[in-house]
């Protein structure tokens, strides 16, 4: 057998082992990654294995299923998306121009930030709403699957080194003040002002297994469903549709599309470039 054929056999074996690991993770702990997009989940599992110094997925499964701490580390590995404040500044600029006027007409506004990861985009939205004079009547429900990620989001502490990039993003996003007004630097980190999270509810929610928990005027789910396969994306699109009030606004990541999803015909585009949609039926 050639070495290339051996490699190919090993990949097939690894794929089987990964399926078994994910099945075990679901049955033992209830976290369901079985319908995640395979390429990226495989990368992350192999990365975790390298960090844990474990050679085979089967050996790793043994560790994950018998050791809660090992499982928790895997969960963080699978759920961290590295984002930035005001990621894709034009999205926030368009939000200011086209969504804020809609929100002004509501007495109260409920926003669901689904898959908020470590919170950078939640604080960005809080800043935007405060500058538009809307923050006091808004509640932002920021959810993620991982407790550890939410703990970080709640802290609101980010590396000082990132602030130069974030300041640029903030300005391009139509920021009205000095970005540094919103945080206090402390050694190599900054802490965002606690006032920004007075109307933020951080909470665990699993898009894969949990249902709708409220009706929202705005739902942001940006660069979260890219980790799901098509079947799971469909489920989440239905969940989001069901959780959105009529004429509510739905925001996706730059390279995500409503096209070919079961709910495509139920929204109007608010903006063609930035992925902002409005539920119309």
């Amino acid at each position: 057998m050639t070495s290339a054929a051996l490699q190919s056999d090993q990949t097939q074996l690894e794929d089987i082992e990964i399926a078994l690991l994910l099945e075990g993770l679901y049955r033992v702990y209830g976290f369901d990654f079985r319908d995640y997009s395979p390429a990226s989940i495989k990368r992350r599992i192999l990365e975790r294995m390298r960090a844990e110094k474990i050679a085979t997925v089967s050996a790793y499964q043994d560790c994950v299923l018998h050791d809660d701490a090992c499982m928790e580390r895997l969960l963080v590995g699978l759920s961290v998306h590295v984002t930035s404040m005001f990621r894709d500044p034009s999205f926030y600029l368009t939000f200011r121009q086209k969504v804020v006027p809609i929100l002004r007409t509501y007495p109260t506004v409920r926003i669901w930030h689904a898959g908020c990861s470590t919170g950078e985009e939640v604080y960005s939205m809080a800043i935007l709403l405060q500058e538009e004079g809307l923050y006091r009547k808004c509640v932002i429900y920021a959810t993620d699957i991982s407790r550890e990620v939410l703990r970080k989001a709640r802290e609101g502490i980010f590396p000082l080194a990132a602030m130069q990039e974030y300041t640029g993003n903030y300005m391009k996003a139509g920021g009205k003040h000095e970005f540094s007004d919103y945080y206090t630097a402390h050694y190599d980190n900054v802490i965002f002002h606690p006032a920004l999270k007075t109307n933020v509810v951080f909470s665990e929610h699993n898009l894969v297994t949990d249902g709708s928990f409220n009706e929202f005027h705005v739902i942001l789910c940006r660069n979260v469903m890219i980790y799901f396969n098509k079947a799971l994306q469909e489920r989440v699109h239905n969940l989001i549709y069901d959780s959105l009030s009529m004429f509510g606004v739905f925001g996706l990541g730059n390279k995500e599309s409503l096209k070919f999803t079961p709910r495509a015909d139920f929204y109007d585009k608010l903006d063609s470039r930035d992925k902002l949609y409005r539920k119309v039926r």
Binding site: P38, A39, R43, V82, N223, I226, K255
Partner: peptide
């Protein structure tokens, strides 16, 4: 992937 592209923000 087998049936198309996948993006990631890892």
């Amino acid at each position: 992937e087998r049936d198309g592209f996948a993006l990631s923000t890892e």
